[in-house]
Design a protein around this nucleic acid. Structure first.
Lengths: 198, 198
DNA sequence: TGAGGGAGTTAACCTAGGTTAATTTCATTT
DNA sequence: AAATGAAATTAACCTAGGTTAACTCCCTCA
């Protein structure tokens, strides 16, 4: 599990989105983070101007409201880029923390350096914009779901979108992902159970 | 108001995000749309794989739920890029229509051709990714607002985010932007009025 | 073995916002 | 000036989900 090997994982992930990236440009050092279950990679409010890559494991993005209520923005399973685009780009504190739900292997680069070194590489930029397109589309879908759908519908959608996660993570996190309390989710599940009995 | 002039508007808008774009690459023809107040540039469900630019005027993005309820995703004032990133990128039907709230001058390019012609230009790609970063960040903020804030809070935020629009557009569209019914918005405004009397 | 302690369930009550419908206000057309 | 009609307000009633709290399962750890 050396750094070279991990770095190659990251490269091949990027290469899947658009090939011929000239990785020789990249000299900024990779950093390794081993984040154990329930620990935080970084906390809300810190500055996390790094490009993180989740090699293996499972995390959630959690943000806490002024009144202290937790809200799960999303879940992410490796292998996958993670982190806060907003914080990287605007050089401002992150609006959410990243918590490991299972032991996770994560690496990171300083985004400022990474971007400066790679931004003249056309293949990289194209790949970066495809990544942005993708996360934008997901956010747009999520916006729609909150406005148009009931909590019950959102729960059913969650079960389709993350079929394996339903068993793997505590129910309260699912509730906070669909934007309701654990109590309300329990009620909904109860109702669904009765409905399917008929 | 000839096409050359309009095209220059679009170019200089892009150039503000990142200069030195080589516009000589671009040969796909620009198209002009004059969309009168309350008319649609395109309707939900159509294919709108074009890069639109709103030169002047005001529009809203409207999507209609299965039950026939309207929801306003956002408002856009010219000059600004408009359209559906999702539809452009995934070549799928748009999930919302664009309706003019005031007479608007809009131009468009076929996105497939535009992108093919410009994608080798580093300055353009960089500028495109900055655009994507920006719209992603806005969506993320909007996601947060729906989960964490009350409708009253969202209304107050709207008034700050679009100070001029409060007077310019019908209240029902504001309601549908913050995700509530016109009746509920009216109630909230009433409550705020009383509160500020004290 | 048994004593926490967190996660989920259930029930009772509360509240924000939805629904329907009546009323008013204002803008446009004739 | 009258007539139409859409937009906003208000009131009465309803419902989804929040809040609090009691109760039950585990699971862990001593």
């Amino acid at each position: 599990m050396d750094k070279v090997h991990l770095q190659n994982n990251v490269f091949s992930y990027f290469n899947r989105l658009g090939d011929e990236i000239d990785w020789k440009r990249l000299s900024t050092p990779i950093e390794v983070h081993l984040t154990a279950k329930s620990e935080y990679l970084f906390q809300q409010g810190e500055s996390a101007e790094r490009l993180y890559f989740l090699h293996s494991g499972l995390v959630r993005y959690v943000s806490v409201s002024g009144e202290g209520k937790e809200f799960t923005q999303t879940f992410a399973k490796g292998p996958r880029i993670i982190g806060s685009t907003r914080s990287m780009v605007t050089r401002s504190p992150v609006l959410f923390g990243i918590q490991a739900l299972e032991d996770s292997i994560i690496t990171s680069y300083d985004w400022g350096e990474f971007y400066q070194q790679m931004r003249r590489d056309n293949a990289f930029l194209e790949c970066y914009s495809h990544f942005l397109e993708e996360i934008f589309i997901l956010k747009e879908e999520r916006e729609n779901t909150f406005v148009k759908d009931s909590a019950e519908r959102r729960y059913l959608d969650f079960c389709v979108a993350f079929p394996d996660l339903k068993e793997r993570i505590p129910q309260q996190y699912i509730a906070s992902y669909i934007g309701i309390t654990p109590v309300a989710l329990s009620r909904i599940r109860q109702k669904l159970k009765l409905k399917n009995r008929l």
